[in-house]
């Protein structure tokens, strides 16, 4: 499980100074967190191009308000929230666009490289696709990012209680989906 949280590199930034973050800090954040954030986004949106766009947008947004931040961990939290929100927006735009193309072209965007995954993993990921967006986000943040309930609550903009109940219900739903497919 990846720990996409307060990584060591962030604690090195602006260490102890409490000065506003600067361009150099952003460069360090970018170098340290771009890949894990793209991986997070790809688990939410399924295709690499969208995932990279979402992450680039998140960094661009952070760049615009960097001078307001003094805490690198808050910057990472901001990035994470932006990626979750951006991924949800990307899915929504994709869903809206899909509604206006001829049915023959309305196939979901192919998670191209899933094909090389083990059958076992493909089944679980397909089940994850069938959950509500919020449920999927909570499970990804919990079981891949390894975030605490409080961190997930912050990233998703919901209460800790909602995180707990959403995760529980999402696991139940996933289990039912997998059982329904005879697994």
């Amino acid at each position: 499980m990846r720990r996409l949280t307060n990584m060591t590199t962030t604690s090195d930034l602006a260490a102890g100074s409490r000065r506003p973050l600067a361009a150099g800090d952003l460069a360090q954040l970018y170098a340290a967190h771009r890949l894990p954030l793209v991986r997070l986004a790809i688990l939410l949106v399924d295709d690499r191009a969208s995932a990279e766009d979402v992450v680039q947008d998140a960094f661009a947004s952070l760049a615009g308000r960097l001078h307001k931040l003094r805490d690198p961990d808050a910057a990472l939290g901001y990035l994470r929230t932006s990626v979750v929100n951006g991924s949800r927006s990307a899915l929504r735009r994709r869903r809206t666009a899909r509604a206006y193309v001829p049915p023959a072209e309305a196939e979901p965007p192919g998670p191209d490289d899933r094909a090389v995954l083990a059958e076992e993993h493909r089944e679980v990921l397909a089940g994850l696709d069938r959950l509500a967006p919020r449920q999927r986000e909570v499970l990804v943040l919990r079981y891949w990012s390894g975030l605490s309930e409080a961190e997930i609550a912050e990233a998703c903009g919901i209460s800790r209680g909602a995180v707990k109940s959403t995760a529980s219900r999402a696991l139940d739903a996933l289990e039912q989906i997998l059982k329904g497919e005879g697994r």
Binding site: L117, A118, E120, V124, L128, W144
Partner: peptide
């Protein structure tokens, strides 16, 4: 779930 997410 954790293994599938990690693999992806």
């Amino acid at each position: 779930l954790s293994e599938a997410l990690n693999a992806r």
